[in-house]
Computed example of a mutant assay.
Amino acid sequence: MDIRPLDLADAPNLVPAMAALLRSLALEFIVHESTPLGASTFLAENDEMGIRGYLARGHVYHVAFDDGQLAGFISIRDNSHVFHLFVGTPWQRQGLARRLWHAARAAAIARGGDGNFTVNTSNHAVPTYERFGFVRVAPTQCLKGLYFNPMRLCCAED
């Protein structure tokens, strides 16, 4: 497994695969709990154009490849907020999410982050973030028809 920062020169070739992976996983694990409007809004905001926009706004992505195939990715906004963390179904429950998290967290701290992180996660991913040391900071929220759980990690090592 190869985990590396997303090179902006590679982005035009990788963003379509990232958007396709995100869409398939969102349909399976996230948006089925949302309102129809929430689901369509989330999918529209996280399509190829959306991911390109996040890159343009400074989100830092790390990508994981298994024999040249995109296995997962993570993005961090402002060195402190986990914005995306998606791992393809064949690679789930093998520690890839944790490896992506470690790489992204270390890079964010190296860029000046203080080690405090937030995430707004789906119900499905709450246990994963809890294993990383995140704790809920509020009950489940709904914004634009999408349900999420605000969580925080305060300078903890896992």
Rank of each mutant, 00 (worst) to 15 (best):
L37H: 13
G38T: 09
G38M: 03
S40L: 14
F42S: 12
A44G: 11
E45K: 13
E45S: 13
N46T: 08
E48D: 08
E48Q: 10
E48T: 00
M49Q: 14
M49P: 01
G50W: 08
G50Q: 04
R52L: 13
R52E: 10
G53L: 00
G53D: 08
Y54A: 09
L55D: 07
L55T: 03
A56P: 03
H59S: 10
F65T: 02
F65L: 10
D66W: 07
Q69H: 07
Q69P: 06
L70N: 10
L70H: 04
G72N: 14
F73H: 04
I74H: 07
S75G: 00
R77Q: 05
R77Y: 00
D78A: 12
D78N: 12
N79C: 11
N79T: 09
S80A: 05
S80V: 11
S80W: 04
H81P: 00
H81W: 02
H81Y: 09
H81G: 03
L85T: 07
L85D: 06
F86Y: 11
V87E: 01
T89F: 11
T89P: 11
P90A: 09
W91S: 08
R93M: 13
G95L: 01
G95H: 02
G95A: 05
L96E: 00
L96T: 02
A97R: 05
R98Q: 15
R99F: 14
L100V: 13
L100I: 12
W101D: 07
H102E: 13
A103R: 11
A103D: 12
A106G: 11
A106Y: 12
A106I: 14
A106R: 11
A107T: 13
A110Q: 08
R111P: 01
R111K: 04
G113V: 08
G115C: 08
N116T: 15
N120G: 02
N120P: 07
S122M: 07
N123Q: 15
N123C: 12
H124I: 03
A125G: 14
V126F: 05
V126W: 04
T128I: 00
T128P: 02
E130V: 03
F132C: 05
F132P: 05
G133R: 05
F134K: 11
V135T: 02
V135C: 06
V137E: 10
A138T: 05
A138S: 09
P139G: 03
T140M: 01
T140D: 01
Q141A: 13
Q141C: 10
L143D: 15
K144A: 13
K144P: 10
